[in-house]
Design a protein around this nucleic acid. Sequence first.
RNA 1: GGGCGGUUAGCUCAGUUGGUAGAGCGCCACGUUUACACCGUGGAUGUCGGCGGUUCGAGCCCGUCACCGCCCACCA
Length: 949
Amino acid sequence: MLDKTYEPTSVEARIHAAWMDANAFAAGAGAKPGADAFSIVIPPPNVTGSLHIGHALNNTLQDVLVRYNRMLGNNVLWQPGMDHAGIATQMVVERQMMEAQEPGRREIGRDKFLEKVWAWKEESGGTILNQLRRLGASCDWSRERFTMDEGLSKAVLKVFVELYDKDLIYRAKRLVNWDPHFETAISDLEVENIEVDGHMWHFKYPLAGGETYTYEEKDEDGNVTFSEVRDYISIATTRPETMLGDGAVAVHPSDERYKPIVGKLVQIPVGPKEHRRYIPIITDEYPDPNFGSGAVKITGAHDFNDYEVARRNNIPLYALLDTKGSMRADGVPYAEAAVVAQAIAEGREDFDDAKIGALNIVPDDLRGLDRLVARQRVIEAITEEGLAVMVTDEEGNASPLVENKKIMQPFGDRSKVVIEPMLTDQWFVKADVLAKPAIASVREGRTKFVPEGWQNTYYHWMENIQPWCISRQLWWGHQIPAWYGPDGEVFVAHDEAEAQKKADAHYSKTVEITRDEDVLDTWFSSALWPFSTLGWPDKTPQLDTYYPTSTLVTGFDIIFFWVARMMMMGLEFTGQEPFGTVYVHALVRDEKGQKMSKSKGNVIDPLKLVDQFGADATRFTLAAMAAQGRDIKLAMSRVEGYRNFVTKIWNAARFLEMNECFRVEGFDPKTVSQPLNRWIIGATGRAIAQTTQAITDMKFNEAANAAYDFVWGTFCDWYLELSKPALTGEDAALKDETQATAAFVLDQILKLLHPFMPFVTEELWAETGKTGPARDTLLMHAEWPDLLSLADAEADAELEWLLAVISGIRSVRAEMNVPAGAKIPLVVVQAGDQTRSRTATHQPAIERMARIEGVTFADAVPANSAQVIVGEAIHALPLGDVIDLDAEKARLKKDIDKLDGEIAKIDKKLGNEQFVAKAPEEVIEEQKQRKQTALDRKERLNTALSHLG
RNA sequence: GGGCGGUUAGCUCAGUUGGUAGAGCGCCACGUUUACACCGUGGAUGUCGGCGGUUCGAGCCCGUCACCGCCCACCA
């Protein structure tokens, strides 16, 4: 016996256990012999993660595809696993150590620290995978992988070494994005540019030796509009503290204003006077003569643009900041450093990167200060000295020129602190080389994006791809397999022994080598996920069967981070695209369209939804709202609505149970004879076909809605109601057939809904199997249905008629305010043979559903009747004195007016020569038919009207 | 600065070979019926963001403007 109400929580736990016991999620479970493979790799969640609504959406969609394909009989693998998430995990463990007031990681050392992280991972990591189980995700959990597993690490090692050997990985000193909080380099993608309020200061750089020149501004015609003798050049900056590291001032070669002083030296107006450096005025294409003063200070070590200018012009790159973003405090005192720097600036001394890098030219009094404090000091000192550009207000008061300005400032996506360009030694991947085949794969259609539009995003990024900085100054991750000889020579190898061998060979003697401390970007290992999880580089049967994977389901926010890199690595190392289709789903926002975030407090916890409404309702909501190319604004009312849908199905099953529908053995839908039953079987087939097509097209919302509409709107609202006379009637044969049909259709519904609502459907499958023929398989391994061949046009027409009769009568009753409880007679006027026979067949249903008592046929409409036109017949409801004749007249008149409007519209069309000449024949035919139908109906309505006198 | 997406009922959203505008929620009215009030029946509601164009015909195609959102980008 089914319980009166469905209790998701207990059922879900029990059903999930049953699936696990049956090993039902295992790769290939339920597959037909020789079936095609269908595989999906899960976007590996962070080991530190917990389920948020985006995961719920992402995994629901994957599970829909996976369960659907399993039911098709395909050989299915859904590969689960987790990502070690370098920065995030290290952060969690470090914070925990701090809270426990334990010694920090640097104090306990690398090995001890890593032990702690592993211990944390074993105990607290991966809660998200259990949360996915609650959603019903049918991953092959026995194949769970972790990016730091031995096997996957082996793959990482091999990929690194091979890319290095192919010269696609290199080590170099470059300006990179530096996170001062985590004290590591990060990639371009991990930087978020955010507009903030900033200031732009204007300062004077005095010319060496007190030289002067005439500064002139001209208009378009060459007339001098401003002229002044100056002994300085004016520059603007948003970062005054970096002036200490300036290597030059650049102007555009075409800039006439500065022609007289190009090549001369200017003094940096900051620092102890006796050691101020002189730097040259150079020309470069970079400065925009129309912006600011047209002169740009060049600080090669602290700005990406300046870096390029400095490289082009051989300008030294003075590093001013330490790893925490404070002013450097290392090296020799300022006085000594300044002398060397000056010698270099004047060309008296040679320099190279190493020499410049070691030189700390931060004045002693600024050393160790936070860069923002230093900035303030610099501004004050310059202003005090009178080297700030001044403006005078209306009252004649002079003040330094400081513009308030919106500036784009880079922030670390995890640390949320301001990122600094920093000159450091890092490892890079030549992404542009790897990108070429990855672009071609999409261009040539071997990998498709759904929705298609995302391919443009992909192209744009891939075609402008920058070298990928893959080294991170962290401990948690894959340590870079590079060792250094005594003179810094690099030896990349699979292990230390191999590196040692290479080193010894290189030096022709045994030398001491030390391993690179850095680890790889987490995304480096994620990029290998589709094949590393299947055992690569070993040639495993799994790799053979399930690679390339079928479909990747992911959010657009990681197209660059992950999808693009998997494409590059997959093609480079397997020669095949890692997936055929990339389905890109939207972001889930709150009801108002706001991005969910903890700080806004608008986060919807999917597990709370599961607790409150059940996993099935939660899943169904997400699927039903996953329209392509649009963000999902999740409204609670929708979840509630689909919870009601679950209840509806449950109650429908209870209804069948009460009517003993499940007892019939060996039912064959082809043998059904009753129109009602033939119709519902056909309708089921159409609903299945629609849902199937929608899933195939990955239009999850359409698939879910098609199933929903059919189950509620057709099966429950019409079929079950119409079947009641048969189910409670005396005709045993009719009853048998109806019981069997109802049970059969419910089975098909359970299959149809299973990919979306796995729990309640599996439960009902099991429960209904207890009172009927035993189930020979779990529902999740049942065969996906296809009933289109059982459609019956005649039955469809008959039921369409019946539905129109019942709806028509109901509508009239309500409009005429006939009390709902009142049973009234029905007189069918001018009925043809077909109508007569249909009416006889369905009289019990009409009486029951339209609250009719007694059906008769007549040639004329009885007096005082409300009238419903269906087909050729008038269905008259004699209401006697109850009827409001005026109301009925008005009602009929309104209908006629409506038809008149329609007829007029069609006439206008048909009267248009252009339309008749140019519209396709079938469209014209359709219009003509529509007009005829309207005319027929109008005629009957007029007849009906005339009956009212 | 460049690119992408959105604008349809009170709300949240569907709507592709261009052919008479839909769902859920909410709202109004009525509740008879041994599945279900997490329900049933009936009902109301739209210059499909503005303007222009193509077409016999435009929510859909083209142009343009407005507003909203996102992505990318080096203006000191």
